[in-house]
Simulated assay, not measured.
Amino acid sequence: MSKDSETPEERRERLRQEEWKDNLGGNLNDSLNRGNNGSLVDLVGGLGWKGTGILIIVIVLGFIVYSVFFR
């Protein structure tokens, strides 16, 4: 597959793999932390743009409700 016809998700994954090849020590640390905590990149990549928008709206509405009722 050429680099021109790849999807944004494939491009992101390819760039992440290239970065891991260049930084082996950081890769070990990142892998240990990602296993425990997860990753925002993986979350947003899995949700897509609609899911990410809904997540942001829910967070903002939750903050508004919290600030109104718990002041």
Score class of each variant (00 low, 15 high):
K21E: 10
E6S: 03
S31F: 12
D42G: 11
L47T: 08
L24V: 10
F70K: 11
S2M: 07
K50Q: 15
I56T: 02
R12E: 07
S2P: 14
I57W: 02
G25A: 12
E19Q: 07
R14C: 01
G26C: 00
G53A: 13
N27A: 05
V68I: 15
E10T: 03
L28I: 15
D30V: 04
G53W: 02
I56A: 11
M1P: 01
D4V: 10
E6K: 09
V65E: 05
G62L: 02
W20V: 06
L55Q: 02
Y66W: 10
V65C: 08
L40G: 08
K50I: 15
K3R: 11
V44H: 01
R34Y: 04
I56G: 06
P8E: 06
R16A: 04
N37T: 12
W49H: 08
G53M: 13
Q17F: 08
S2E: 14
M1L: 09
E19R: 07
V68Q: 05
G51M: 13
K50D: 15
K21Q: 10
S2K: 15
L28V: 14
W20Y: 09
R71S: 06
Q17W: 01
L40H: 07
G53S: 14
I64H: 01
G46R: 04
G48L: 12
W49T: 04
L61T: 00
G48R: 08
Y66I: 07
S67V: 08
D22L: 10
E13C: 05
N23H: 02
R71G: 06
K21D: 07
V60G: 00
R14I: 01
I54M: 09
G51V: 12
E19H: 08
G38E: 07
L47M: 14
E6H: 05
G51P: 05
V58G: 05
W49L: 05
V44D: 00
G45C: 09
N29D: 07
K21N: 03
E9H: 14
D30C: 02
V44Q: 12
N29Q: 10
L15S: 01
V60L: 12
E9F: 15
I54Y: 08
N37P: 00
N23G: 00
L43S: 11
S5A: 10
V68L: 15
L32I: 15
R14D: 01
V68H: 06
E9K: 15
R11L: 15
N37G: 04
N33H: 05
N23M: 01
F70W: 12
N33V: 03
S31K: 12
L61D: 00
K3G: 06
V68D: 06
L28T: 11
D22S: 11
W20E: 11
G26D: 07
V41W: 06
D22W: 00
I54H: 06
